[in-house]
Simulated scan of single mutants.
Amino acid sequence: MRAVRIHQYGGIETLKLEQIDTPVINADDILIKVKASSINPVDWKIREGYLKDFIPYKLPVTLGWDVAGTVAAVGDSVTDFNVGDEVFSRPEISRNGTYADFVAVKADEVALKSAKLDFGQAAALPLAGITAWQCLVDVGQIKAGQRVLVHAGAGGVGHLAIQIAKAKGAIVIATASAKNQELLTQFGADQAVDYNQGTLLEQIEPVDLVVDTLGGEVQSQSWALLKPGGMLVSIVDQPSEDLAKEHDVKGAFVFIQPSSRILRELNTLVEKDQLMPFIEHRFPLDKIAEAHLQSQSGRTRGKIVIDVS
């Protein structure tokens, strides 16, 4: 089968499209024939070597940790899936990934995909969708009527977080550049904020929950936007406990894990027409280097999909 692997850490020149053996599945695995994958920043951060101490791979490794496809085989102990089922997943990141014709994934990390999603849309949803759900629901414990601020609302996690928060009955404020203001409204934001038009404190009334997808200075400015007892949830930097106490709020950091439970929750929202990933770019597998460069530009709206087969 074809697979895009790296044999060493570095730039896009390390991405090699190769012929390798089809994975051998364990008893609790399913083998997915990959129809589509998608790009997430973690992909090129791993490729560059930024996470090599956090996730120690034995190279070479196949990259990519979003997948949609069909079940090609099931392990001996798997009872929930059958050959031919259309599925999607964010697989365990320590295993070989999804820039490949086939990938072995634990069955409890997989869910049936909604018929309302094509394979590209389904591949765009798992990692970013699980991240947004964990920030808002599992950690943020979002409630109807709360005011929620989503930073970088036009991005991969941000645009899904807006939709999930709206589905939960929240009032959503989202930030983006001037050119993406209309897009924020299309995703359902009640207030679209141009971060270049004055400080956040000048433009945003106090909120109950902040979803921080940017870290750094944006995170620092966000503490003052929270109501007492509110929460800042970051996917970038561990929030300061001292600053949280100073503002009488809470801080939390999210690094996602696979979750078929959340995939099923996301499917439910899709079925209710409350959630749909936005795809700005699609690339074939042999153009994976271009896809990585697009992601690294930081200018992608929504998601980048890799059409594998």
Rank of each mutant, 00 (worst) to 15 (best):
Q146D: 08
Y50D: 13
F255C: 00
A72D: 13
H7D: 15
W133Q: 02
L160Y: 06
V4H: 04
K245N: 15
A154P: 05
R264T: 15
D101S: 06
K227V: 15
V110H: 01
L149E: 10
F88L: 15
V139Y: 02
S220T: 15
D242H: 08
V61Y: 00
D248H: 13
S295T: 11
S38Q: 02
A178I: 14
G230H: 12
V233E: 12
E109S: 06
N180Y: 12
D286Y: 07
Q296E: 15
V157L: 14
K272Y: 04
R95S: 11
I162G: 03
I256N: 15
Q296I: 08
T199C: 10
G11A: 13
C135K: 07
V193A: 06
A244K: 13
L200S: 00
T22V: 13
G169D: 15
S38L: 03
A73K: 11
I39M: 11
C135P: 11
F278P: 10
W133F: 11
L266W: 10
E217L: 04
E246D: 15
T131N: 01
W44Y: 14
G302V: 11
V236E: 13
K52D: 00
D248L: 14
V78I: 03
E92V: 00
F54I: 13
K116S: 12
D66H: 02
G216Q: 10
A174N: 12
F54H: 06
V157K: 04
V105T: 08
D286A: 00
A192E: 13
D242R: 10
D21G: 00
Q221K: 14
L232M: 09
Q146I: 06
Q221L: 05
R90M: 14
G198Q: 10
R301H: 14
W44V: 03
P60G: 01
T62H: 02
